[in-house]
């Protein structure tokens, strides 16, 4: 009796293995030889950018497992260490003064700034430097649009808010908070967006080549940042996006502010310094 049970178990194991092979052969989930794609994070050991990036990588793997890709996030304090792992892109959360040197050091590899909002960093237009965090100018334009409608408002402009619900914002907030136990901040969104747009683009390219990724990010991106519009990078590397107007920890409006402006281009600029 005992040996009979064992035999059945082993047979069904073999049947399962055979089924897996058959599924692979008919062109189903290509999990046999996954392509490993590394994404590097450079910044403080603990940061909202990093927590967001981890969330984005987890979502990238939820996609990649169906397409034969595995994404790995490396976490280091400096760019040199990050580059040693041959990443497809580098996400940074560094002081403004360290952003341009990092981009230079990683020439040819997309460096995505998730932590500094300084406008001059955008105006420099380094070919491999991209920004998912909104610039200071974008936030100022959002506020000025909002004040035309509500002059007394004390609102501030943000990339994200933990109360965002529309456009599946509620689902993203739930995924992030379930994992981290924290509300999703602007920087967490910027880290998530950077990792997610890298993984989605690498999945479409089926490639870990940094040059191909950088070209696709600059030229072909149509990213769903869960804010209701398709997002792409401007010529100066800034991700165009709507902003949320927040007062007393609640969302009171969205920019471009309806009735004042219509276009995402009304927030900040895509221009390079002359």
């Amino acid at each position: 009796m005992h040996s009979h049970t064992k035999c059945t178990a082993s047979r069904s194991y073999h049947a399962l293995a055979l089924l897996a092979v058959l599924l692979w052969m008919v062109g189903g989930v290509d999990a046999a030889t996954p392509l490993t794609v590394r994404v590097a994070y450079v910044g403080p050991a603990e940061s909202d950018s990093l927590a967001g990036a981890r969330q984005g990588i987890a979502e990238g793997n939820a996609q990649g497992k169906f397409l034969g890709l595995v994404f790995e996030l490396t976490d280091s304090r400096d760019v040199a260490t990050a580059l040693a792992s041959a990443p497809v892109a580098v996400l940074i959360d560094l002081p403004a003064a360290d952003v341009m040197p990092s981009a230079k050091q990683a020439a040819g590899v997309a460096v995505i700034n998730t932590g500094a909002e300084d406008d001059p960093l955008r105006a420099r237009c380094a070919p491999n430097l991209l920004h998912t965090l909104p610039s200071a100018a974008m936030r100022a334009d959002a506020l000025s649009q909002w004040r035309q409608k509500s002059p007394q408002s004390q609102a501030s402009a943000h990339a994200w808010h933990w109360r965002a619900e529309m456009y599946a914002g509620a689902q993203l907030n739930k995924r992030y908070t379930d994992k981290t136990g924290r509300p999703m901040s602007d920087q967490a969104w910027a880290g998530w967006a950077a990792a997610k747009l890298v993984t989605d683009t690498a999945a479409r390219l089926k490639s870990a080549d940094p040059a191909a990724l950088l070209t696709a990010l600059r030229e072909d991106l149509a990213f769903d940042g869960q804010k209701g519009v398709e997002m792409s990078f401007r010529p100066n590397g800034q991700l165009s996006q709507p902003l949320l107007l927040v007062e007393q920890d609640d969302i009171v409006g969205e920019a471009p502010v309806r009735g004042v402006a219509t276009d995402l281009d009304s927030l900040g600029t895509g221009d390079c310094a002359p």
């Binding site: 599924l23 189903g28 169906f66 149509a222 990213f223 769903d224 398709e230």
Partner: peptide, 12 residues
């Protein structure tokens, strides 16, 4: 009831 193919399309 098995996934046999996955096709990437436009956003959302």
């Amino acid at each position: 009831n098995q996934v046999v193919n996955n096709i990437l399309v436009g956003a959302r």
